[in-house]
Nucleic acid binder design. Structure first.
Length: 566
RNA sequence: CGGGAAAUAGCUCAGCUUGGUAGAGCGCUACGUUCGGGACGUAGAGGUCGCAGGUUCGAAUCCUGUUUUCCCGACCA
């Protein structure tokens, strides 16, 4: 490809709107342009990278015998009413009406469509296990699109769906997909950690996220140094290292703590450590159930864990008005004693084994001190509902947890029979008995992969593309277009290497500085500069991470390219 | 959805407080000089100042409304 013909509008300065380094680079390098908030056009360079990443993913799917197909973007609401997600999915769905007034939507994911079109056609256990995938645009009306391709409203996703007759088959399919995904990320040059994850609105209990550590990530993952434990912070568990010495039980006392609302207020006011105070927070589950959650003062409640524990669709902290309405007191005075208004009292495990601690007295501006479990109150259940802290031992090997921000580049789910049951996709098992098909779903955010790869491969002046997804393998940069010797050599190299590689030949009549700057920005794995020594058939070769270029003869170049690009 | 900021040339921004015919740098075009790390000079092209109302003799500037974009958070994957 001749660079003079490639629409590659590079910028010296990044638009002020861009914050993430990957976003800036994609705009500066001429990979993408924004059309509207969270919607991007892929220019030739961006499209090439995208296509290469998709090709890798196609190959990895083929290796596990999963064929490609394509579902429509435009879907009828009726399908989603069948699964119950027309309501449940919420405002994130792009909904629209056609001219006949029929409700439609732009697909944010395709569990329903695959259940309808594929699962319902699987009539016998003999047809399974089987899986299919597609790569297409997905639409999610994100509340707040940001960071370029990292959180956009229209994005490209690879989504695979598996159909099994038995749990064992599903487990095997899940492992196959996990392997294929891992291989695809690896080939894209992306460092990825699989972590324990929350399955959100997708349903199912067992899900794994693929997280790519990066400076700009929206997620935090907790891992130990050996990698034997890794979880999204939303799901991470850790061992509580605090231990209170056993004490003689003292008499409960009510003390006035006027105006003290927070734990740190009470620490100062009562002169006790936060570990001797139990925080009480009122949650509203499914908009009707009042759940009082207790946790030791130095810890925080993990709402995702709580949501799983309670097995509810919605969960939120009660508003100040609701709190007063329900308990009669304000923040800071709520507690578990005489809390008849609570439908359920859940205590985090950190509350166990405390002695003579402080809780709200359910009387405005008062606390009880010297409170003890069993004697003064009993929670309905104990559970782990706290946010893990960095440095605490992991639950597997008891090694300290390290937190890393990262980008979610994929998520795989063991869906089970939720969709097939609600939508009625049954098959006959060996005994001739009707059973719902057991499904799994597997997604890679293809456009996120691009952002993540860039985030992980930034250089001083651009990016160092991993060779398998670089927009071009070889960048031939001719210094002087008017020099016939240089032109001859550059064209000779272009022709020779185009047979096996993607070659970009910078044939623009630009100054050397401009060409070098653009070449750094582009970051092809191998750059060949054709300059002064063209007539001696000597070129300069540089990889994006090399400090300096190296002079090479043509045969040395040949060897180098074979070694670098394979 | 709560909070904050912004919208003036392709990009980065000034001008607005104190109303008076639209500015700079980079980029673009032409010519000349230069020619291996985003050159220099000269001459140009390019903007209904987001949109709609209002105040005024006169609005980029003041007022009202509206749209869009970005950031922090909540939500979500």
């Amino acid at each position: 490809m001749r660079q003079s013909k490639l629409f590659m509008p590079t910028l010296k300065e990044a638009p002020a709107d861009a914050v993430a380094e990957s976003h800036k680079l994609m705009l500066r390098g001429g990979y993408v342009r924004q059309v509207t908030a969270g919607v991007y056009a892929y220019l030739p360079l961006g499209y090439r990278v995208l296509s290469k990443a998709e090709q890798i993913m196609r190959e990895e799917m083929a290796k596990i015998n999963v064929p490609e197909m394509s579902m429509p973007d435009l879907l009828p609401a009726t399908l989603w009413e069948e699964s119950g997600r027309w309501q449940k999915y919420g405002p994130e769905m792009f909904k629209l009406k056609d001219r006949h007034g029929r409700q439609s939507l732009l697909g944010p994911t395709h569990e329903e469509t695959f259940t309808d079109i594929v699962a319902k056609d699987l009539k016998s256990y003999k047809q399974m296990p089987i899986a299919l995938f597609q790569i297409q645009s997905k639409f999610r009306d994100e509340n707040r699109p940001r960071f370029g391709l990292l959180r956009s409203r229209e994005f490209i996703m690879l989504d695979a769906y598996s159909f099994a007759a038995t749990k064992e088959q599903l487990d095997q399919q899940f492992e196959d997909e996990k392997k294929a995904f891992t291989a695809a990320y690896h080939r894209c040059g992306l460092k990825v950690t699989p972590v324990i994850a929350d399955s959100g609105t997708m349903g199912g209990k067992n899900s794994t996220e693929f997280q790519a550590p990066a400076a700009i990530g929206e997620d935090t993952i907790a891992t130990n140094e050996t990698g034997t434990y890794s979880a999204n912070l939303e799901m991470a568990c850790s061992i509580d290292t605090f231990k209170q010495e056993e004490e003689e039980l003292k008499q409960v006392e009510e003390v006035a703590t006027p105006g003290q609302e927070t734990i740190s207020d009470l620490v100062d006011f009562l002169k006790v450590p936060a570990t001797r105070i139990v925080k009480s927070i009122l949650y509203i589950a499914n908009e009707n159930e009042k759940v009082l959650v207790l946790i030791r003062g130095d810890k925080q409640v993990n709402e995702i864990k709580l949501k799983h524990l309670l097995d509810v669709d919605s969960l939120r902290v009660a508003t100040d008005a609701e709190l007063t309405d329900i308990t009669g007191v304000t923040k800071g005075s709520v507690g578990p004693i005489n809390a008849d208004w609570a439908d359920q009292v859940v205590a985090d495990n950190t509350v166990n084994n405390l002695y003579n601690f402080v809780v709200g007295a359910n009387k405005k501006g008062f606390q009880f001190i010297n409170v003890n479990l069993g004697r003064d109150f009993n929670p309905d259940k104990f559970a782990d509902v706290r946010v893990a802290n960095e440095g605490e031992p992991d639950p597997v090997d008891h090694l300290p947890l390290k937190f890393t921000t990262s980008i979610e580049v994929g998520h795989i789910f063991k869906l089970g029979t939720y969709y097939t049951k609600t939508m009625g996709a049954n098959f006959l098992d060996k005994n001739g008995k009707a059973q719902p098909v057991i499904m799994g779903s597997y997604g890679i955010g293809v456009t996120r992969v691009l952002s993540a790869v860039i985030e992980q491969h930034l250089t001083k002046n651009g990016v160092a593309w991993p060779k398998e997804i670089a927009p071009f393998d070889l960048h031939i940069v001719q210094m002087k277009m008017k020099d016939e010797g240089q032109t001859n050599l550059a064209q000779k190299l272009e022709e020779k290497y185009s047979a096996n590689y993607d070659v970009l030949y910078d044939d623009r009549n630009e100054r050397a500085g401009v060409k070098f700057a653009d070449a750094d920005l582009l970051g092809a794995p191998v750059r060949v500069t054709v300059g002064k020594k063209a007539n001696e058939e000597v070129v300069e070769v540089k990889r994006p991470t090399d400090e300096k270029a190296t002079e090479m003869t043509l045969s040395e170049l040949d060897e180098f390219i074979n070694k670098e690009l394979g």
